[in-house]
Simulated scan of single mutants.
Amino acid sequence: MDELKEIAVPKGAKTVLTAAHVQSGPPIEPLVRVVTYSASEWETFIDEWVSHCLKSEYLKVLRFTGANDRGIDIAGFADEQFLDGVWDNYQCKHYDKPIPPAVAWPEIGKILWHSFNGHYKPPRAYYFVAPRGTGTSLTQYLANPSTLKPALLKAWDKNVKDAITTTQPILLEGDFAAYVDRFDFSIFKPVSVREIIEQHRQSPYFIGRFGGGLPARPKAEGAPDEIGSHESVYVGRLLEAYADHTKEALADVAGLKKWDKLDKHFQRQRESFYGAEALRVFFRDKVEPGTFESLQEEIYEGVVDTHDKDHLDGYHRVMAVTEVAQALQIEAHPLASCTFPRDRRGICHQLANEDRLKWTK
């Protein structure tokens, strides 16, 4: 029996083990991650890309699902005529290898057949999108449209005629053959997966899909001297709270000068409100829709019991609620690392602005 030996520790390691690696393993590059998607998830990813990164090109983006999609996966419409107007098609394919011509031929055939029958106008552009891209042969055909049509015609009987519909073979004859002969095959194009991912970085869905952390948050500019119209509700709620505390009516914020403590408290609340607004606006286009609203909901759920308790007056209710908000454990929330105690106080005033929190009964 051979002598057992200890496994030697590799020398010259160039990485340092981090907490993130221990919990989740090493990061996976987006180009590798998309290969693991299901066909449905790949379509969702492309829908995000077209809808958010190419939105300046389209009036509307729609995803077609189901067996009777007539060769359309994701369509971007440039005008209100939709399928009868100017539109582009993004054909999603998710295979374990680059798309070969045999996979593309039936898809091209569907566009030819259904546009010939008036189900829609031919798209302005038709893109094949796949995590491993198009294979060398198909890419060469797509890059040289003059070679694409003869290659398709040659493959028609074997790859296309029985794959367009389930009810009948589609033969290349008569008016349909003439239509195919004069069709503009330059509309069919490949797309670089790397380019898609780089553009997707600008969408609010990128971080949720691929990680990488949130971008650095810029320093908040602070509250302006003049109170804006969008502050009217929460400012009014605070004045009511101060009046409840002092037992004197307050017509406007100028009246707070009489009480230095309340005046300074009011200024801090405005700074907090603008901090929360800066947080909301900065991450609005950088995380998935609803992310900031879910943070507001976390704060609301954390303070509402304190809000509903009996307090000496409205001012003490404000103090109690904002103190609880500052101490809440929100580490599980995606925005936790970018949220300061001041922001949590400000979110309370955002909630007051929405009539969800009221300081006086």
Rank of each mutant, 00 (worst) to 15 (best):
M1A: 13
K5Q: 12
K5C: 02
E6H: 09
A8G: 06
T18M: 00
P26V: 00
P30V: 08
R33Q: 12
V34L: 04
I46M: 07
D47V: 03
E57A: 05
K60Y: 12
F64Y: 15
A67M: 12
R70H: 13
I74F: 10
E80P: 00
F82S: 03
N89S: 14
N89Y: 06
D96M: 08
P98R: 01
A104D: 03
E107V: 01
I111G: 00
S115G: 03
S115N: 04
F116A: 04
Y120E: 02
K121A: 13
P122G: 07
F128P: 05
A130C: 12
G133Q: 08
L138A: 10
Q140D: 09
Q140K: 11
P145D: 07
P145F: 07
A155T: 00
D162Y: 10
I170P: 01
E173Q: 15
Y179A: 06
D181M: 06
S192T: 09
S192E: 13
R194D: 08
E198G: 02
Q199F: 03
R201M: 11
G208P: 14
K219F: 07
K219L: 12
E221T: 06
P224R: 15
D225C: 02
S229L: 10
V233T: 11
G236D: 04
Y242H: 04
K247E: 12
V253T: 15
G255A: 10
L256P: 06
K258P: 00
W259R: 15
D260E: 13
K261L: 09
L262I: 03
H265E: 07
F266V: 04
R270F: 06
A278M: 07
F283Q: 03
D285G: 01
E288N: 09
P289D: 05
T291N: 09
Y300N: 02
T306W: 08
K309V: 00
D313W: 11
H316D: 08
R317H: 06
A325M: 07
Q326I: 01
Q326F: 01
A327M: 05
A327F: 03
Q329V: 02
L335P: 01
S337L: 09
C338P: 00
Q350E: 06
D355Q: 05
L357V: 00
K361G: 04
